[in-house]
Structure formats: structure tokens, C-alpha cells
């Protein structure tokens, strides 16, 4: 395993665990930004430059900021007095551990074990753009429509109701 992968993987996993364990929600949001940045580094390490920078722009730049705003708007910045975990947390942790055990067993018993890179793979922005404009033009249009609908829907849902007269 290369040193870059180990460092990025440790950073990503440690900050992801921190997101799920920290009491203060603002600290959770900051740890989440670190997780997303670590994943962007792993994408870059896998030669997927465009996806890595899209991850940085969309997740670190937009989603993390959106989550900070939601935390501030719901007064989540004071740490809660009671436990941050729900009453049936043991069951949830058990399910998560079982899911990880199943996924890890299947991965380690599959043909992916020890598979090396087959050679150079490169995805330039020009190639991605050409694919998006030819083969994937319909999904691109649908994604644009979905983003418009989500934008309008989010504004309408979060809009304050009119005071009854």
C-alpha cells in the first residue's frame, strides 16, 4: 500500500468517526469537511482529477456550509444536555458492525483481493465533457431538471408560513 493512500484513508476514517461521536454539532460539521476533503484526495490519488475537484467544490464548499447553516438555524450549536445517541443505540451499532463484517468478508473472498492497477487510466475534462454531451446527454438534462426542482422545492419547504390574519 502506498503511503499517500494510508495517510488519506486514516484521515478520512478518523474524521468520519469523529463526525459520528462528537457532542458539539459545529465540531461535527468541521470534521465532516475534513472527511470530504480526504475523499477528494483519494479520488485524486486514483487519477480521477475532475471528480476530485468536483467533490471539493460541491461537498467541502457547498454541502458542509449548508449543514453549518442548518445547525445554526436549528440552534444546535449548544451541546445537548442528554446523550447524543438514541435509546436503542446498541442495536444500531450492532447492525453497523454486522454490515461491515459482511462487506469485508465478501471483499476479502472476492476476485478483488490483491488486484493491481491494469495500467494507465486517465479521464481528461475534455473526454468527460464529450461523453456528457453525446452518450449521457439525456441523464445530463434530467439532472439539470432535478437540480432546478430541488432548488425550488427547498426554498418552498423552508419558507416561513404566512401569519394567520
Amino acid at each position: 500500500m502506498s503511503a499517500t493512500f494510508v495517510m488519506l484513508a486514516v484521515l478520512t476514517v478518523v474524521s468520519a468517526v469523529a463526525v459520528m461521536l462528537l457532542r458539539n454539532l459545529v465540531h461535527c460539521a468541521l470534521a465532516l469537511a475534513v472527511t470530504f476533503a480526504g475523499l477528494a484526495g483519494i479520488y485524486l490519488q486514483l487519477n480521477a482529477q475532475f471528480v476530485g475537484f468536483a467533490q471539493l467544490l460541491v461537498y467541502v464548499g457547498a454541502v458542509a456550509i449548508l449543514i453549518v447553516f442548518a445547525i445554526l438555524l436549528t440552534r444546535g450549536r449548544e451541546p445537548p444536555l442528554q446523550s447524543v445517541f438514541s435509546g436503542s443505540a446498541i442495536v444500531g451499532f450492532g447492525i453497523a458492525i454486522v454490515v461491515f463484517a459482511v462487506l469485508a468478508t465478501m471483499t476479502l473472498s472476492s476476485r478483488a483481493l490483491g488486484m493491481e492497477k491494469p495500467g494507465e487510466a486517465n479521464a481528461s475534462v475534455a473526454q468527460i465533457g464529450e461523453q456528457l454531451m453525446t452518450r449521457y446527454i439525456l441523464p445530463l438534462e434530467v439532472a439539470g431538471l432535478l437540480l432546478t426542482v430541488a432548488l425550488i422545492g427547498a426554498v418552498i419547504i423552508a419558507m416561513r408560513d404566512k401569519e394567520p390574519e
Partner: peptide, 12 residues
């Protein structure tokens, strides 16, 4: 698994 554990157990 970390994400699933958080989604199943956190209160907020």
C-alpha cells in the same frame, strides 16, 4: 458502516 452507525444511532 460508520455512516450507517451514525444514521441509526444519533438523535439529531
Amino acid at each position: 458502516a460508520v455512516g450507517l452507525g451514525g444514521a441509526l444511532t444519533r438523535r439529531n
